[in-house]
């Protein structure tokens, strides 16, 4: 994550947001159109700890 100076005294904050197909709605965010995605299939498998969270949600 990094903070940059934005217009009119604002701050632009840039961060990663990991997403995986099949996540419940609460875990999903904005997805780019497929033609703007580097690899439409990645990522597919959530890490083990997140799979457990999803299963329990």
């Amino acid at each position: 994550m990094a903070a940059f100076p934005g217009p009119n005294g604002t701050t632009i904050l840039v961060r990663n947001h990991e997403m995986y197909p099949g996540l419940p709605r609460a875990f999903q965010g904005v997805v780019a159109p497929k033609d703007r995605m580097y690899d439409p299939l990645a990522p597919v498998v959530p890490p083990r700890w997140l799979s457990a969270k999803i299963a329990n949600s």
Binding site: M1, A2, F4, V14, N16, E18, M19, V31, A32, R36, M37, Y38, D39, P40, A42, P43
Partner: peptide, 19 residues
């Protein structure tokens, strides 16, 4: 940006972009 995988710490450039 989307379609990349397991994006981690990253970092900023001095010219106004994010890696």
């Amino acid at each position: 940006m989307a379609g990349t995988s397991r994006n981690c710490g990253g970092g900023k450039t001095p010219w106004g972009s994010w890696i």
